[in-house]
Simulated assay, not measured.
Amino acid sequence: MKKREFNPTESLQAKKDLKKKEQELELIEGKILELEEKKKNLEAQMADSEVYEDSEKLSHINQDYNKLKENEAKLNTDWETLVEEIGQLQETIS
């Protein structure tokens, strides 16, 4: 396999891109933690016997919970993509 020649311009751009991706990753991680906290809160509400006996309230909480799970799944996919991109940029820089 042929080794690529060092390109200072490409390396500088990769460093900028890496910093941007790392910031995006940090934001996504914060959002994931926030969603996990909201899910715990909703799970606690669903376990409450008063809520459990109120079918309308339980239905609304279940809808909110399912939306959070969908958002969390998307954020996890975005997180995985960013981790891969960061790894590629780190290889480019080194």
Score class of each variant (00 low, 15 high):
85 E>V: 05
67 K>L: 03
74 K>F: 00
11 S>R: 10
74 K>W: 01
61 I>M: 04
67 K>S: 05
93 I>L: 14
82 L>R: 10
18 L>C: 08
31 K>E: 13
17 D>Q: 10
92 T>V: 07
56 E>S: 06
94 S>F: 11
61 I>E: 01
73 A>M: 06
31 K>G: 04
65 Y>H: 15
51 V>F: 06
58 L>N: 02
44 A>M: 11
62 N>E: 12
22 E>A: 03
91 E>Q: 13
61 I>T: 02
55 S>G: 03
64 D>G: 00
63 Q>G: 08
87 G>L: 09
87 G>E: 15
57 K>Y: 06
55 S>V: 15
77 T>L: 04
22 E>G: 05
84 E>V: 03
4 R>S: 06
82 L>A: 11
35 L>P: 04
35 L>G: 01
49 S>H: 07
51 V>K: 01
36 E>P: 00
61 I>D: 03
56 E>I: 15
39 K>Y: 08
6 F>Q: 08
47 A>E: 15
21 K>Y: 14
49 S>V: 11
62 N>T: 05
84 E>T: 12
37 E>M: 05
68 L>G: 06
36 E>K: 14
50 E>R: 15
35 L>K: 13
59 S>F: 14
71 N>T: 04
29 E>H: 05
33 L>H: 02
39 K>G: 00
78 D>H: 04
93 I>T: 13
41 N>M: 13
21 K>T: 06
93 I>S: 13
34 E>I: 07
21 K>G: 04
9 T>H: 12
76 N>S: 07
18 L>R: 08
63 Q>I: 14
61 I>Q: 03
58 L>D: 01
57 K>R: 07
93 I>C: 11
41 N>D: 12
23 Q>I: 14
42 L>V: 10
46 M>N: 01
55 S>I: 15
86 I>A: 00
62 N>H: 10
18 L>S: 09
44 A>V: 07
7 N>M: 06
